[in-house]
């Protein structure tokens, strides 16, 4: 395939993701392998690009959560096929994010979206789920090589928990970066509680993470 054909191929994959068309995603993934296109490139330039479009369409209220989850499922269909073909030196550059919804909060739809996009962007993501106490974040940072801890909060009560978690992480692991988000969380709040960064939505989270990893 020449460059133009390649780009067209990535576009098609992205579109299949946006459409939530799992069959098409799988077909394209198999075709890509057959044509010996780099599996990592297909994921990043095709699938992840598609998910970024999805996230932007959500912000514009043109797609909603059911459609997003459909896209995510379609994308997984492709990623499952492509994963075994990824060359190991492709992933060594990327970092590791530990993500979770803070204690007392079970709103995990937004967190799941952020996780999804980070994963498709090639990062290793450790998902601690929802209603996660500070100790669990600390324990994970202790055990794993975590670069960034990403915290989500959707309620004002849990924003207070977020503050505690960030404080403790900053004290114990000043080298590990923190990123916070969730509907009521703002840039000002992030600054106030001493978090290293804030992102308003899932596609921005990718950019922020890439910035943090330098």
């Amino acid at each position: 395939m020449d460059n133009e054909e390649l780009n067209e191929f990535y576009e098609k994959m992205a579109q299949a993701v946006v459409d939530g068309n799992e069959d098409e995603c799988i077909r394209l993934a198999n075709l890509g392998i057959e044509e010996q296109i780099d599996a990592y490139d297909i994921i990043i330039k095709g699938c992840a690009h598609g998910m970024t479009i999805v996230s932007d369409l959500y912000e514009k209220r043109e797609m909603f959560v059911p459609e997003i989850l459909l896209s995510a499922r379609a994308m997984s269909g492709a990623v499952d096929i492509l994963k075994p073909y990824i060359k190991t030196d492709d992933i060594k550059e990327t970092g590791c994010v530990c993500i979770g919804v803070v204690l007392g909060d079970i709103h995990d739809i937004g967190k799941n979206l952020v996780k999804l996009l980070l994963e498709t962007a090639g990062l290793r993501v450790i998902d601690l789920g929802r209603d996660v106490p500070t100790e669990d974040f600390i324990e994970t940072v202790e055990k794993e090589k975590v670069d960034i801890v990403a915290l989500s909060a959707l309620m004002t009560t849990s924003m207070m928990e977020m503050k505690e978690t960030v404080k403790e992480l900053n004290e114990k692991y000043p080298n590990v970066k923190t990123m916070v988000g969730g509907a009521p969380v703002s840039k000002e709040f992030a600054d106030k509680i001493g978090a290293d960064s804030y992102a308003d939505n899932a596609s921005e989270a990718i950019r922020v993470v890439q910035g943090l990893l330098g």
Partner: peptide, 12 residues
């Protein structure tokens, strides 16, 4: 359900 000390209960 989980009933926290100071917070809204959540279905687990």
């Amino acid at each position: 359900e989980n009933e926290p000390y100071w917070g809204i209960p959540s279905a687990v």
